[in-house]
């Protein structure tokens, strides 16, 4: 781990979030995510894991406490942050290429730079052959690739992912998990990843934060010290199985009986 990976990229200090109706979603949550980490948030429904992403992105404000992203307020840090949603959120009237280029376009990148960047991202996620297709012609896994390519096109330093592979079959999910790690190795972004899948969390993460519900709070933090690069074969390794079992056990403790 090099020095640049140490500085905090996301910092929550006593963050509380209430719904407008008064329900408590997060109770004085404090957490630090360092540069280069891949942090998964896992927990029962109602633990506020998606809310954490909404707070980091500034899409919803905290009721109390402070949030810093790259030393800035969440809204001011958006330029360096990309968000991948649970559904692929593609614009159906745009081709794959135009969808991948959307973020760049909105941020004012045009012309040759836009075209080159879009083309290279399409190649990177293996979508070059369907660049002119419309989203409805693609499978769920391919749509998600488009979504990932679009998020990476703007060269984010922080990637927020809200159960991006939940709707996919296991084969597609495993493949995309492996690709996500390959892309991360090349591009060195930090990731905050929300998931329901223990195996997925162990495979991807450097650290897993297990949240408890009602109100949402940190239940346990489990470091995942499996070496990179992590390849498909890792899923059969005994240390992978041991960690999965440990996370599952911790997750069960976090769910009230």
């Amino acid at each position: 781990m090099t020095q640049e990976f140490i500085a905090p990229q996301v910092e929550f200090t006593g963050v509380t979030k209430r719904y407008p109706n008064g329900g408590l979603v997060l109770d004085a949550l404090s957490l630090t995510i360092a540069k280069g980490e891949f942090v998964s948030l896992i927990g029962p429904s109602g633990c506020g894991k998606s809310t954490v992403l909404k707070l980091i992105s500034g899409l919803t404000p905290p009721t109390a406490g402070t949030i810093q992203v790259d030393g800035l307020t969440p809204k001011n840090a958006r330029e360096t942050v990309s968000y991948i949603f649970q559904d692929a959120t593609l614009l159906p009237w745009r081709t794959v290429r135009q969808n991948v280029g959307l973020g760049l376009e909105l941020e004012g990148v045009n012309g040759t730079r836009h075209a080159q960047r879009t083309a290279s991202l399409l190649e990177l996620v293996g979508l070059g052959h369907v660049a002119e297709a419309y989203p409805r012609e693609l499978s769920g896994g391919m749509k998600m690739r488009v979504s990932i390519a679009r998020a990476l096109a703007t060269s984010p330093r922080l990637l927020l992912m809200d159960e991006p592979f939940a709707a996919l079959d296991e084969m597609a999910r495993d493949r995309l998990n492996e690709e996500l790690l390959r892309l991360r190795a090349e591009q060195k972004w930090t990731a905050v990843f929300v998931t329901h899948s223990v195996a997925e969390a162990v495979f991807l993460s450097t650290r897993i934060i297990v949240l408890a519900a009602h109100p949402g709070r940190t239940h346990a933090i489990i470091p995942v010290e499996l070496p990179f690069p992590r390849l498909a074969a890792l899923r059969a390794a005994p240390e992978f199985g041991a960690l999965t079992a440990q996370v599952s056990r911790t997750l069960r403790e976090a769910i009230p009986q």
């Binding site: 992105s57 899409l59 958006r78 330029e79 942050v81 990309s82 968000y83 949603f85 649970q86 559904d87 959120t89 614009l91 009237w93 959307l102 973020g103 376009e105 909105l106 941020e107 703007t154």
Partner: peptide
Amino acid sequence: VEENLVHLFLMHNASPAQLLLKLRLPH
């Protein structure tokens, strides 16, 4: 328009004009 699409545009600092012309109108 689906809320997540609006969020997507906001994450890329879209202006109100961009939200209208590139999202709401085609939708």
